[in-house]
Amino acid sequence: MIKQRITSLGRSTLDTFESLGRATIFLFQASVGIPGKEGFHLWLRQMHFIGVMSLAIVLVSGLFIGMVLGLQGYTILVDFGAEDALGQMVSLSLLRELAPVVAALLFAGRAGSALTAEIGLMKATEQLSSMEMIGVDPLRRVVAPRLWAGFVSLPLLTIGFSVVGIWGGYLVGVDWLGVNEGSYWSNMQASVSFIDDVGNGLIKALVFALVVTWIAVFQGYDLVPTSEGISRATTRTVVYSSLAVLGLDFVLTTLMFGEL
């Protein structure tokens, strides 16, 4: 009885490490190598689907989050007579935390799940094995453009999120609630450092981009090729990438801002 439990624990541990190893090898095989002109066109097509089509949801969310930050920040800061620091509060919260994290979560839901389902269906209908059969490497043809497109798109989406969010905070704080326009911008400029805040936010976005697209593409490539397998893998993509983003965010924040 006890021996069985220990055996099953050992099996699940080995399974986990095996799939981690497969995922790492998969990432290297897919991303290493110089793409030709054909590869560039495939990448462009994926950029359109993953990046451009995600723009609307990311920008609208950014606007609303910026507006909520402006409103909430104002009601708290006005008690201390410090509503002039609103620009600083909105911009720092967006640049350091909210933009990378929320954009990555939206990206996992919008693009990650679609990637898993698409590649999973290709696998289930044996398109991937047919490609291998005719001598086309599916890692290079299907996976690599999607990985690179995700890796490039999410940082750009994060920048858009921050810009729109800061503008949303401005809309609510300055236009509606009457914070002084000059102090909104000058307090922001005095406290935001390009390298420490904008730069570290971008590093976060790059890490999240890699993790989210990697998880999405690998789950699609590694799933059980049945309709149930596809649905499970799609769920796993969203759950795993959300958890990974939130967990990694804590780790990155302690490294960047925690003064450890």
């Binding site: 950029m47 990046g51 451009v52 640049l95 920048i159 858009g160 921050s162 810009v163």
Partner: peptide, 22 residues
Amino acid sequence: GVGLFMLAGILGLVFLGLSVSG
């Protein structure tokens, strides 16, 4: 579309650099 997307991202970064971090 992709070109505009990349351009918007770069412009956004410039805005963050000049206007937000001064």
